[in-house]
Amino acid sequence: MRKWLKIIAQTGFFVIVSILMNILVEWLDIAIPGSIIGMFLVFFLLQMKWIRLEWIDAGASFLLAELLLFFIPPSVGIISYQNLMLHEGFQIFIVIAFGTAIVMAASGLLAQRIAKRKEHSQS
């Protein structure tokens, strides 16, 4: 019970930061989402030791562990595009499947090559 109260309170902290950041973004009229700015802000506060890790660690772990849950309602939105999926679904699937594999190969192989070269130059 205590553990859950802690998680709920700490999750609440992240919700409040996100609300405040959305207000800020709207006020400044910039194209970067409030949540990204919020992430940098919380990181900065941690680095400066203005907030301590144990104050928010349990809430952050909870949010990140259940991340997939938050993706589900928007993905159900696919039913609003039944016609599109019926007519172009296969092509779209091919584009996404091959495109994703290409991006993975490109970014993964490049990152691995850079890592190996670094290792090499150090030894």
Binding site: V15, S18, G38, M39, F40, L63, L69, F70, I72, P73
Partner: peptide
């Protein structure tokens, strides 16, 4: 459905902010 679902989807925003912790 989404009248309720959107509240779950909203949690993506605090979750994005929570990435600050592993980043730190």
């Amino acid at each position: 459905y989404n009248a309720g679902g959107k509240w779950l989807a909203y949690m993506l925003q605090p979750a994005t902010i929570a990435f600050a912790v592993p980043l730190y």
